[in-house]
Structures are given as C-alpha cells and as structure tokens.
C-alpha cells in the first residue's frame, strides 16, 4: 500500500516538474526581453536537476545524483556568463 503511494507521488512529482519545465520553455520562447529568456533558462536548469533527483528515487540508482550535480553546475556557469553578456555585450572583460 505505501509502496503504491510512493510510486504515485513519484509519478505526480515528475508530471509537475515536467509541466513546470514546459512553462519555462514557453517563457524562453516568448521573451519578451533577453533577460526574461535567461531567467527562464536558469529555472529550467533547476527544474531539470530536480527531475533527475526524482528519477533517481524512481530507479533506486545513485547515478542520477551525479547528473543532477553536473546540471546544476552547468546551469550556474551558463546563467552567470549570459548575465555578464547582457550587461556589457562581452563575456570576459
């Protein structure tokens, strides 16, 4: 019984995160400005890391943890570089 509750909530959590990722993609596509797109992309990375962690619980494998760690690292570097680019038009001054 409790195993069923767990598998249903894992499914629901995945659904919610996927929906959320859909919302962020919509914002990336719509804009209206570059900073909106970058912000949405950053949120997308965070939601992707969360989704990977939920996948880890679903499969009982620890591999997904490392993927989540890498995604969050990449997301930070990408967003920081893009914000610098928005501010000055160059990534490295």
């Amino acid at each position: 019984m409790t195993a069923m509750i767990l598998s249903w909530s894992v499914f629901l959590a995945q659904l919610m995160l996927a929906l959320g990722m859909g919302c962020t993609i919509w914002r990336v596509a719509r804009g209206p400005r570059a900073q909106d797109r970058v912000l949405a992309l950053d949120t997308f990375y965070v939601l992707a890391a969360m989704l990977l962690l939920v996948f880890g619980i679903r499969t009982g494998s620890v591999v997904y943890f490392e993927a989540a760690l890498v995604i969050s690292l990449l997301g930070f570097v990408a967003t920081a570089a893009l914000s610098k680019f928005l501010m000055r038009g160059e990534v490295i001054e």
């Binding site: 509750i5 909530s9 959590a13 995945q14 919302c23 962020t24 914002r27 939920v54 619980i57």
Partner: peptide
Amino acid sequence: AILVSLLLLLGAGLGLVGAIGLL
C-alpha cells in the same frame, strides 16, 4: 515511504508554482 512522498510532492509543487509565476 509516506514522508518521502510528501517531501517529493511539496518540492515538485513549489517548482511548478515558481514556473507558473514566470508565466
């Protein structure tokens, strides 16, 4: 199992609300 389920739903729900906020 119950505790993990509650935490998962809370976390995913907050992520979704944040994404809705973006819209």
